[in-house]
Design a protein around this nucleic acid. Structure first.
Lengths: 237, 237
DNA sequence: CTTATCCTCGCTATTATTGGGGAGTTGGAA
DNA sequence: TTCCAACTCCCCAATAATAGCGAGGATAAG
């Protein structure tokens, strides 16, 4: 690890507010000499927060067009543990391609590298580096700094979580074992009757679990409750 | 980062099987000169996998007693993003204290440092370093190696995920845009009526999407379809 | 011993979802 | 052009889920 990165991490640890993060990400961009560096945070309610060096116009357009839904970087990171090089994603569909053109038109680099980061309760964020350059230079850059970037992403997310207390530590809705059972079996496709039979309880009892899980998760219906339990990592299917 | 750690990470990247991981974690323990180093992988179905340097007797006892349920290291890591020093956990309850005594009796160190790691689909693992020493030495050790350990934990989990056949590479049936919309809105708690209104289509039409999505996903009902769409990363919620 | 949480079971009534049909339009691909 | 997949709309009857009440026993923590 380069000494400069040590310094950066120490600056990160000293950061005391969201403004510091914005400054830091800008100096990070300058330090690595790339076009853009972005931290982008999403949660299960669809809230987003981000800081970075993309133009305001692009951020506004991204939100306006709801690009989150089709951005292959997002879905790619969401499914993987590894950092992803944008080149290895699927850009073939028409909607995605027009998104890509729009992005480049707004100054996003043709190369990119995004690191998925995950926290408790299904928290999910991405740390992205983007630049305009040829494939070989980019590969060399990633090869050289991959580990630094991973560590920076990790520390960055840690700080971002501290500064956004209203979002991540939602009233931790630890489910009881029976509630977890119920949610899990529903998530794998069992009907109420089958779940009750599997758990060897009456359907009335089962309903109490589903409703209390729904209440704890702040969900409107069973499907919502299962979705939340999944996205918060309370059940694994 | 020490050069030796670079070497370790490169060894990690070259690992091709679970046995390599076991060897590596033993050499890691020797390199850092600590009593124990353990990688522990859990999901809420109760499946576990681990490798490390704890005694077989302790691992067997841990499983037998179902200590996973009361281990404050597990629950502490599960709720946090930061690595946790065991000292900062709550050991006050009766059950936890007897667990702690049992652990120390089986050769687990009095000091410990555990790093939570999370992957897609609620995957959760911990990378733990444990040692027998006084508080000051331990604090100095952690201060010195925290970043190395985080990076090692990250790479270690990456490899462990590769070797774990738990993830079935089922051919993912792409959903149509409208189907994605429907699944997404259902996942965030909308009722059919609300979804139809949001998408500005009739409820009858909506039902066609839901059913075709259900068919494509091989799901038994709507809840199942949403759960599958989520776990396959087809929708981001 | 008190409080709290969990687990278990019951009723009635209303609303939402599902399964079985069928049918017309569009836009892109072969 | 022809074909296909996607998008849109409709009916009817059966089934599943939800909302509102209720209650008792077990287990564990403070």
């Amino acid at each position: 690890m380069t000494p400069a990165v040590e310094t950066i991490l120490e600056d990160l640890e000293r950061a005391t507010g969201a403004e510091d993060l914005q400054c830091l990400i800008e100096s990070l961009r300058d330090h690595f000499d790339v076009d853009h560096m972005v931290y982008h945070w999403v949660n299960s309610n669809g809230d987003q927060y981000g800081c970075g060096t993309y133009s305001d116009a692009w951020v506004a357009r991204y939100l306006e067009k709801d690009y989150l839904r089709i951005d292959p970087v997002v879905s790619g990171c969401y499914q993987r543990f590894h950092p992803v090089d944008w080149k290895r994603l699927d850009w073939s569909s028409r909607a995605v391609r027009s998104f890509q053109l729009d992005a480049i038109h707004h100054g996003v680099g043709n190369q990119g590298f995004s690191i998925p980061i995950r926290g408790p309760n299904g928290q999910f964020a991405m740390f992205t580096v983007s630049h305009n350059t040829d494939d070989d230079s980019w590969a060399a850059f990633i090869e050289a700094y991959r580990r630094d970037l991973i560590l920076i992403a990790y520390y960055f997310n840690q700080k971002a979580l501290e500064f956004e207390p209203g979002r991540s530590p939602e009233p931790t809705p630890a489910l009881s074992p029976r509630e977890v059972d119920a949610m899990t079996l529903l998530a794998i496709g069992y009907s109420r009757g089958q779940v009750a039979q599997t758990l060897a309880i009456s359907e009335h009892t089962l309903r109490v679990y589903i409703e209390s899980a729904r209440f704890k998760l702040g969900a409107h219906n069973t499907t919502h409750a299962v979705a939340r339990a999944m996205s918060r990592g309370l059940i694994v299917v």
